[in-house]
Write a protein that binds this DNA or RNA. Structure first.
Lengths: 340, 340
DNA sequence: TTGTACGCGTTATCAA
DNA sequence: TTGATAACGCGTACAA
C-alpha cells in the first residue's frame, strides 16, 4: 500500500491497476463503471487492485474521453453579504446532487473579467451568471457560444435562459402599504445601477405607485456601510423623508444604524424598509419590513435549469419568475396590536 | 463567425485553428502560450484564426498534457453563516490571483462524504479542508495521498499543513475580562463537539480561568436559531447564569434575541459574549463583545500555503496560528464612560 | 522558425 | 467475457 493519489501529477493510472489485476485496462474500466460484462471473479480482482493502489480515475482523462467536465460554474460579484451566499447554497446543493462539481468565480475588483469568464467557461459544462456581474458584451459572447447558460436575476434575453424573483408587484404592494401608514415623502435609497436589473424593477414599481413623492438616492454599494453613510447625510440634514425604501436589506440595516446614531427613532421619526429578508432582517430592532425573496430556491432552480439545458432536454421555458412575499414587521410604521 | 465554444463537447479544436491559419498545431500552441519562437506575421495569422473561431483550449486537454488542473478545492460544512463565507472569500481571491480556479464542496447533510471528497480530490491540484467537516479516516486518506493539503481551523497534524486562529489565550483574556465585571456564574454555550477543534480550545481556555464557575451547555448547531432555542431554556428557568460565553457570534446573537424575548436586559440581567466578530456583532444591540478572528486572512493564507505546497517550494512550516483580538463592546457588562 | 509525432489517462468500439 | 486499439485535445521534444 503506497499512498499515491490519482490526481493528475504522478497518480496511479489504470494501467497499473490492470497489470496488478492481471487484466486489460478495458476490463478495469468496465468493472469500475459497470458498463459491459465482467466475470464476477475478474471484478473481484480488479476491485482489490483498485483498493490496494488507491486508484481514482484521472478526472482530466475521464473528461477528455467522456467529452464532459461533470462540473458547472457560477459567476457572482462577491460573497460578502448573505444574498449571493444563499443563492450559492441552493446552487451548490442541487448541482452536487446531480453529480457535478461547482466551480466558482468572483468578479469583484478583478480585471480582465472576460478572460476569467472564458477560462471558467472552458472547464465546465454549463454556467450560471448573476446579472450585472459581467459586461454586456461578455454575456453576448457567452450567449453566442454553445455553452449552456442561465442568467440569474436577469431580464428575459433571447438565446438565454433567465431566472429572477418577482420585483414589480411586490414593490407596488410595498409602496401601497407604506402610503397606508400615512407617509408622504419617500426616498428610494440604493438607486439602480442598470436598467432592467432587480433594483431597477423595484424602483420602477415603487415609483409607479408613489410618483413624484419618491426620490431616488444612490449608494456607493448595496452594503450596510454604504447604507449607513448615505443615511447619515440623508437623515441628518433638512427635509428628512418620512420613509426610506431601500434597494435591499443590507442598505436598510445601514439606515437603521444611522438613524440610531442620529438619535432618530425607527419607525416613529423615519420608516425604513428593505428587500430580500436576510436573516438579520428578522433580528434587527425594530424588525425590518421587507420583501422575502426565495434566494436558495433561485440558486436551486438555476442549477436544475442548467442541468436540463446540458442534457438537452429540448428547449425549456426561457424565462421564469419566482414569487416573492411582503413581510411586514415594525420598521415601516406602527401597526395596531393584533393586526397584520 | 460561428458561435461555437471551446468547451469539451463539440468545441473548436486546435486543429481547426491550425488549418485556418495555415500552420501546424504546434505553432498555434506556441503562439498562444508564448512558449518558443513564432514569427510576428505567423502569430498574427494564428491570433486572427483564434478570434474568428472563438477558440479556447479545452481544459481537459490542457490538464492532461500539462499534468495539472490549475484548480484548487475547498471543503466546508455549509455556507449559511458569515464565517465560512468570509474564509471562502479570502481563499477564492488569492487562489484566483494565483491563476487557479476554485472548486467548492459542501458536506453538510450529504452522504458518502468520502466519495465526494475523492471526486473533488481528483480534479484539483490541492485541497483546503475545514477541520470537522470530514471524518477522520478520510482526512487520513488525504494525508496519506500525495495531494497537497491544508487543514483550516485544525490542530497540528503530522504530514499536513495546518492553520488556525489563536483560541486559548484569547479565551483566557475573555474570561478574565468577564470576571473583572464581577460575574460569578458562567455558562459556556455551544459546547465543543470534538476534542481539539476551535471551540474546544475556546472552552479549555475559558475553563482554565473560571474553573468550576463555568458550565458547558451544548447547542444543536452553531447557529442563531440554535443559540436562541438553547438560551430560552437556559435563561428562562431558575439558576440563570450571570454571563453566557458563546462558542461563536451566531449563537451569541441567538442568546441576545432570547433574552429580549424573555424580557431580560443584556448585559444588566445577563452578560453575553461571542466569537469571530462577524458584521452583525457590531450591529447588534447591545454591541456584542467578542473575539475578532481574521476570517478572510485565514482563507487567504490557506490558499497561499497550498500554492507553495503545490509548487513544491520545500517543506513549509507545518502549522501556523493567526492572531486574534478581544473586542469589548457592551454585551459583557457596563464599562465606565471613556474607558476601554 | 516551423512541423511531425508521441504522450497524457480515459472511454468505448470492435474482434476475438 | 476479454483484449487491442483508436479516439479525445493539447503540449512539447525533436527533427527539419
Amino acid at each position: 500500500m503506497d499512498g499515491r493519489d490519482a490526481s493528475v501529477p504522478g497518480g496511479v493510472t489504470i494501467y497499473e491497476v490492470a497489470r496488478r489485476a492481471g487484466v486489460s485496462i478495458a476490463t478495469v474500466s468496465r468493472a469500475l463503471r459497470g458498463t459491459g460484462p465482467v466475470a464476477a471473479d475478474t471484478r473481484e480482482k480488479v476491485l482489490r487492485a483498485v483498493e490496494e493502489l488507491r486508484f481514482t480515475p484521472s478526472r482530466a482523462g475521464v473528461s477528455l474521453a467522456e467529452g464532459r467536465h461533470a462540473a458547472n460554474g457560477i459567476v457572482f460579484p462577491n460573497l460578502s453579504g448573505p444574498y449571493f451566499a444563499e443563492v450559492l447554497i441552493g446552487y451548490e446543493e442541487v448541482t452536487s446532487e446531480l453529480g457535478r462539481s461547482v466551480v466558482i468565480l468572483s468578479t469583484k475588483g478583478r480585471e480582465p473579467v472576460r478572460d476569467l469568464v472564458r477560462e471558467l467557461a472552458g472547464r465546465v459544462d454549463g454556467l450560471a451568471v448573476f446579472g450585472s456581474t459581467v459586461p454586456g458584451d461578455v454575456v453576448g459572447e457567452l450567449v453566442a457560444s454553445s455553452l449552456p447558460l442561465v442568467l440569474i436575476s436577469h431580464a428575459p434575453r433571447p438565446g438565454a435562459v433567465t431566472l429572477r424573483s418577482e420585483n414589480s408587484e411586490a414593490a407596488r404592494a410595498l409602496a401601497i402599504h407604506l402610503r397606508g401608514h400615512g407617509h408622504r415623502r419617500f426616498v428610494f435609497l440604493g438607486a439602480p445601477y442598470a436598467t432592467g436589473d432587480d433594483v431597477d424593477e423595484r424602483w420602477q414599481g415603487v415609483r409607479a405607485v408613489l410618483g413624484d413623492a419618491v426620490e431616488p438616492v444612490a449608494t456607493a454599494e448595496y452594503t450596510v456601510e454604504s447604507g449607513y453613510q448615505a443615511a447619515l447625510a440623508l437623515l441628518g440634514g433638512a427635509g428628512r423623508p418620512e420613509a426610506v425604501i431601500c434597494s435591499d436589506d443590507e442598505v436598510a440595516l445601514g439606515v437603521i444604524l444611522a438613524a440610531e446614531r442620529l438619535g432618530l427613532s425607527v419607525p416613529h421619526d423615519v420608516a425604513v424598509t428593505g428587500w430580500d429578508d436576510i436573516m438579520a432582517a428578522r433580528h434587527a430592532r425594530p424588525g425590518l419590513t421587507t420583501v422575502r425573496q426565495p434566494m436558495r430556491e433561485l440558486g436551486a432552480q438555476a442549477a436544475r435549469a442548467l442541468d436540463r439545458l446540458i442534457d438537452g432536454a429540448g428547449l425549456e421555458r426561457s424565462h421564469r419568475t419566482l414569487g416573492t412575499e411582503l413581510v411586514v414587521r415594525d420598521s415601516c410604521g406602527p401597526h395596531p396590536p393584533g393586526g397584520q
